[in-house]
Amino acid sequence: MSDHLEELRERISELDPTIYPLFSIEFGDAVIAVPLDDLLVTMHRLRELGFDRLGMVTAVDRPEFFVLVYRLHSRALSAGLFVKAKVHKEDPVAPSMFEVWPAADWQEREVFDLFGIDFEGHPDLKRIFLPDEFEGHPLRKDYDHPRVIRRPDYI
């Protein structure tokens, strides 16, 4: 498994040296951690490298920041790749990937709906799952609503 990832690292460094320093291997997966400002440029570059498929867009609510998680796939390189970017909690804005992969359309709306992260450049950013008048973003860790009944801690 890790041989394959090393090979991927080599190929990426051959193709584009600027991405190489960001590359790491975490929990048996290739991960590229990108500063939020460079995200769009890096994604364009990765797409040119052959990562033609955006598999998943999601976010994780860490105590200090949100982590945007993108999962890319390449048929040419036959590899998967995580791209991660930190988003500030005070001002959760990130660039939209719609222009790189249209697949981001609904998935970014989902992240917006459930985490409240704004995607700049998204053509139609509005709630997708929850009704428009819903208050709050439920997948945030601090989300609390009287309607939610917490599960008693039986384990």
Binding site: P146, R147, V148, I149, R150, R151, P152, D153
Partner: peptide, 18 residues
């Protein structure tokens, strides 16, 4: 139903952190 203190059937269960 909305007020957490109420004794209604939908009152939130007490969370015990054990």
């Amino acid at each position: 139903m909305r007020t957490p203190e109420s004794d209604g059937p939908h009152a939130p269960a007490k969370v015990v952190n054990k």
